[in-house]
């Protein structure tokens, strides 16, 4: 037991050092890769809070990502708000949507596969709305004017973008760690393991699950803000794509769902696959196909995810 705990601590330390490395690099290419990996890890961690700790297998987390991205883009382009305010606004939209979707579906008793499909339907519905409303710019999306400067939340140095991605990753990982030690997290695990038993012991299952989805949704929405601020563009396909939802799930499942360090490892694995294949084969689809294969292998052979190799019990 102590052996596993020590190994987990060593792993955490190694990952922390790894996140610091890119700051020392002058290669924009490398820093960019690191930034994408950190965002994947942060989004995977956000998914993990609902999907791993809560067992709420969402197939539609892009709904929250897109809400955050559009909240940020619309507020600054249509209402002239400072883009920094996009962060709290996105968190509020993402969190609110998570709470509402959670309350509605969990009250109706939807679980497991049904919940997964409902989240997918929400993401699709949001995508259709974004594609047809005026305020979202319809299919052509929203372009944010270029105004480099910290005051406008736009950075030309990629390392600043990377720092923001790491900050979001740290926030999400802190939230996951709190879950692994606190009362709310224990309630969430109890509901995941056995809802009836949890309720018999006074755990308000619907509220606990909805709160987890709200927290997860808020963090995911923050990822949407970072996307808009680094690419200065959003459209319905980017915001609400099924691929984004699936990637968040993959990162968490491959690394180890319901563990604090799993999504970090998962993001490393996924990006290692992506970057090696991209340098070897240019045909689109090869890397995502490999993710699918890895997912099948992990589910079949190592259901606890890659983190199980490093730590015997994944609660580190």
């Amino acid at each position: 037991m102590t052996g596993a705990a020590a190994r987990t601590r060593a792993l955490a330390l190694a990952l922390a050092v790894l996140t610091l490395l890119p700051f020392a690099s002058h290669s924009q290419f490398f820093v960019n890769l690191a930034m994408l990996t950190a965002i994947s890890a942060a989004l995977g961690q956000a998914w993990n809070i609902a999907g791993g700790f809560g067992g709420l297998t969402s197939f539609g987390h892009a709904a929250f990502f897109g809400l955050g991205a559009y909240a940020d883009a619309i507020l600054q382009t249509r209402y002239g708000l400072n883009p920094w305010l996009g962060l709290p606004a996105a968190a509020a939209f993402g969190g609110g949507a998570g709470w509402l979707i959670g309350t509605a579906t969990f009250r109706a008793g939807l679980r497991g596969s049904y919940f997964a499909l409902v989240t997918l339907a929400f993401a699709q519905a949001f995508g259709v709305l974004a594609n047809s409303l005026d305020i979202t710019g319809g299919g052509s999306g929203i372009l944010v004017a270029l105004h480099p400067g910290a005051g406008r939340f736009q950075f030309t140095d990629r390392r600043a973008g990377y720092a923001l991605a790491v900050a979001l990753l740290a926030l999400a990982t802190l939230a996951a760690w709190r879950l692994s030690v606190g009362r709310f997290g224990a309630h969430l695990l109890a509901v995941r393991e056995n809802e009836d038993a949890a309720r018999a012991l006074g755990v308000p299952a619907v509220r606990v699950k909805s709160a987890a989805l709200a927290l997860s949704g808020a963090l995911t929405a923050l990822g949407g803000v970072l996307y808009v601020q680094s690419y200065l563009y959003i459209d319905p396909g980017i915001a609400f794509s099924a691929e984004r939802s699936v990637e968040m799930l993959l990162v968490a499942m491959i690394g180890g769902a319901g563990t604090v360090l799993g999504p970090l490892l998962g993001a490393l694995v996924v990006h290692a696959i992506a970057d090696t294949t991209r340098s070897l084969i240019t045909t689109p689809g090869v890397a995502p196909m490999l993710y699918g294969v890895v997912l099948l292998l992990i589910i079949g052979l190592l259901p606890g995810g890659v983190v199980r190799i490093a730590a015997v019990r994944g609660d580190g």
């Binding site: 689809g285 699918g292 099948l296 079949g300």
Partner: peptide, 28 residues
């Protein structure tokens, strides 16, 4: 069958994995 082991989440994720592989194989 073998990957999902008859458990709801396992099967759901196994069929998702199959979908991801097929979609991208077709793309290739």
């Amino acid at each position: 069958g073998p990957v999902g082991r008859g458990d709801d989440r396992g099967v759901l994720l196994a069929t998702l994995g199959v979908a991801v592989v097929l979609d991208n194989a077709a793309l290739i």
